[in-house]
């Protein structure tokens, strides 16, 4: 029995001991639960993974994607790209739909809050190697899709859909009248 336990421990130890921060060059965002993490993973369409609904392009950047880590078959949820601009990761990862890449970035690890295996992608090494690609294409893509919104200031101040909702519901989402009164009292 002791031999069996020792054998199982030996088999388990390479995964249990794996440190995904080794070799990471991720920049800190000074987040309290951030952990640098660099790993190889396959880009997967999450809806495909769970429901079997699998378009060839993984949803063209409009579906949420996952990173299925090669080392331990853990499904990671990439929530953020590398831009400090309220921008997600699906657009950055979609060109590598169903392909195996190496990503570097920050894992957010706060089990008490439920943050398990959630990730900020900073760089991507394409399948087969090559130069690192920065995961920062989102705003460029947005600008190409919204030529009518060209102007000064960040994208989120100019986005037509956001502007439309705020015009209708206010910044607080409770109506323009309440909004105006609150702003008058607090600014």
């Amino acid at each position: 029995m002791k031999k069996l336990i020792a054998l199982l421990a030996m088999m388990a130890s390479p995964l249990a001991a794996q440190d995904f921060s080794e070799g990471s060059e991720a920049r800190s965002w000074n987040l309290y639960a951030e952990v640098p993490a660099k790993f190889e993973a396959t880009v997967v369409d999450l809806l495909c993974t769970f429901t079997g609904d699998c378009p060839a392009d993984c949803g063209a950047g409009k579906r949420q994607l996952g990173l299925l880590r090669t080392a331990d078959d853990t499904l990671i949820l990439p929530m953020k790209n590398s831009q400090p601009a309220f921008t997600g990761a699906a657009v950055e990862l979609q060109p590598f739909c169903n392909q195996t890449i190496t990503v570097d970035g920050l894992m957010i690890d706060d089990p008490e809050l439920g943050a398990n295996n959630v990730y900020l992608v900073q760089t991507i090494v394409p399948p087969g190697g090559g130069d690192k690609i920065k995961a920062n294409k989102w705003t460029k893509n947005w600008a190409a899709e919204h030529p009518e919104a060209k102007g000064k200031g960040p994208w989120f101040r100019r986005d037509p859909r956001i502007k439309s909702i705020i015009a209708e519901e206010g910044y607080l989402g409770l109506g323009v009248e309440l909004d105006e009164a609150w702003i008058a009292d607090n600014f």
Binding site: G61, G88, A90, F156, D159, I162, I165
Partner: peptide
């Protein structure tokens, strides 16, 4: 956080 929630949702964050 309503306005920021709009920004993040439009930005593709889950």
């Amino acid at each position: 956080h309503h306005t920021c929630a709009l920004w993040c949702s439009a930005g593709g964050i889950p």
